[in-house]
Design a protein around this nucleic acid. Structure first.
Lengths: 182, 182
DNA sequence: AAGTATTTTCATTTTTTCTTGAAAACAACC
DNA sequence: GGTTGTTTTCAAGAAAAAATGAAAATACTT
């Protein structure tokens, strides 16, 4: 499984005109169109998850690439900066959405996407959602204590009700994980 | 359940110095501290959900208020603009996180928070998550068709795999709703 | 219907977030 | 140990999102 050679770009992502001449097969343009839309799909998904656009682009590109890609190639195909690529890849590795593979005669790192989307979702939940929730629940516990010291019954009730959120999220996360079958 | 009279603000959110003189009970300052942190809790929750800060502040304020509050009061207590308040309240009403109540002798609208957080979550999922997912799944279906026309087996496989996402989300949403017991 | 109170809208400003690119850090090789 | 290829970091710039405030629209009252 050799890395894509630099002279054979298979995903001409940038520079599409979107036109589709009717009446002939025109596979190239259809393919380009498709690839553009696929990337856009991942960009939207990234943004729904509160992640930068570039992250979605990188993952999308790797998801559809037959071979591992170097950072250089990613930068070239997406037209993004080295900085974005480096940061995006780091984040994606944290989510276990991509991993680096070593290519024998090559000094560079090459990257491949985790194509099991369940795992990507699981990694994202683990790294992004869980910590937020946990710190939120800690904070809530402290607030409940604080409220206990006051003699405002109404406020106490509301804080207590709020603190019951941990019941929901205590169920939600395991359930999500189970659904996603880590 | 009269609306809070304008001369008796019970949530002095703005203008806290955070100092806590030790050695005396100092309930006021503790209370102020608590209220500030509670609002911050909701602000974080809002941001985790990809919503503007002001939205969290408004909901938080209403969540802890004993009485319905008018937009004017909300603006005054939070120190936000009328525009933010209007837009935030609209969004919150769309999520069914707040509702307007009519106060007899009063022309203004008064707002109360839905304190059943399950319902708020359900409303948010319904209004924000579901539409995004649905449009994404539609888009995927189209892409799968498009890919079928090409003779690139690898690309087809990946698109098909991606399209299986609908299995996950097809389960996820009902499950989430069930958990949240709408 | 005219006047007033209240809410909404929206162009502008402010704030936040993302991206860039070049310098620093690192790592492999000779 | 110095050289070169590669990656990371981070200050500055660009883009996107949110907040503002005043004008327009709406709704209530008399």
């Amino acid at each position: 499984m050799k890395p894509t050679s630099p002279d054979a770009p298979t995903l001409p992502v940038a520079g599409l005109d979107g036109k589709d001449r009717p009446g002939d097969a025109n596979v190239c343009s259809t393919r380009g169109e498709l690839e553009k839309e696929l990337l856009e799909f991942f960009v939207r998904a990234a943004q729904l998850a509160g992640q930068p656009k570039s992250l979605g682009e990188i993952y999308g590109l790797l998801y559809f690439s037959e071979d591992p890609l170097s950072m250089e190639e990613i930068v070239a195909r997406l037209g993004i900066s080295l900085g974005s690529a480096s940061q995006g890849l780091r984040q994606l590795r944290a989510f276990k959405a991509v991993r680096a593979v070593a290519v024998p005669g090559q000094r560079k790192d090459y990257f491949v996407a985790e194509i099991k989307l369940r795992r990507v979702i699981a990694g994202f939940v683990q790294e992004e959602i869980k910590p937020h929730m946990e710190s939120g629940l800690e904070r809530l516990a402290r607030l409940e204590e604080l409220a206990g010291a006051l003699d405002d019954v109404h406020l106490q009730q509301r804080v207590r009700r709020l603190a019951r959120l941990h019941e929901i999220s205590g169920q939600l996360l395991p359930l999500l994980m189970k659904l996603v079958r880590v």
